Simulated assay, not measured.
Amino acid sequence: MIRRHQDYILYQRSKKLRKSQKRKPIYYYQYRLPDGTLSNPRSTGCKSQTEAHRYVQSLIDNGTILCGSDLLFKSYASKFYDENGTWIKDKKALGTANKPGIGEIQIKKYQGFVNHYFVKYLPNNPLSSFTPSDIKEFRQNLLENEKLSRKTINDIMSCLRIMFTAAMDDGLVPKNPFRGIKPLLTEPKPRDAFSLEEVKQIVEYFKSEDLIRVYIIVAACTGMRLAEINSLRKSNIKNTYIDLKDQYRRGKLFPLKTRESRKIPICSELYNLLISTIPEGKEFVFDSLSDNRASDKLRGMLIKTMPEKRNEHGYCFHSLRHFANTYFLSKEIAPIKVASVMGHSTGVSSMQERYTNFTEKDFSEFYVVQSELFRYLTN
Rank of each mutant, 00 (worst) to 15 (best):
L94K: 11
L94D: 04
L94Q: 14
G95T: 14
A97E: 09
P100G: 01
G101Y: 06
I102A: 10
E104G: 00
I105L: 08
Q106D: 00
I107M: 01
K108H: 04
K109I: 12
Q111C: 11
Q111H: 08
G112D: 12
G112A: 09
V114T: 12
H116M: 05
F118W: 04
V119D: 11
V119T: 06
K120R: 09
Y121E: 03
L122A: 13
P123I: 06
P123D: 03
N124I: 12
N125K: 12
N125M: 13
N125Q: 15
P126C: 00
P126H: 02
L127S: 13
L127H: 09
L127N: 14
S129K: 10
F130K: 02
T131G: 13
P132T: 00
S133Q: 09
S133E: 06
D134K: 14
K136N: 07
K136A: 05
R139G: 02
R139L: 02
Q140C: 14
Q140K: 10
N141A: 00
L143Q: 05
L143A: 08
E144V: 14
N145S: 14
L148F: 03
L148I: 13
R150P: 05
K151Y: 14
T152F: 10
I153A: 15
I153P: 11
I153E: 13
I153N: 13
N154E: 07
I156T: 06
M157S: 02
C159Q: 07
L160D: 06
I162Y: 07
I162H: 10
M163V: 01
F164H: 08
T165I: 01
A167E: 02
A167M: 11
M168D: 10
D169L: 13
L172S: 13
L172N: 00
V173N: 10
P174R: 14
P174S: 13
P174L: 03
K175N: 09
N176C: 11
P177T: 08
F178A: 03
R179I: 09
R179D: 15
G180N: 15
G180H: 13
G180Y: 02
G180W: 04
I181P: 01
I181K: 03
I181N: 11
I181M: 01
P183M: 15
P183I: 09
P183H: 02
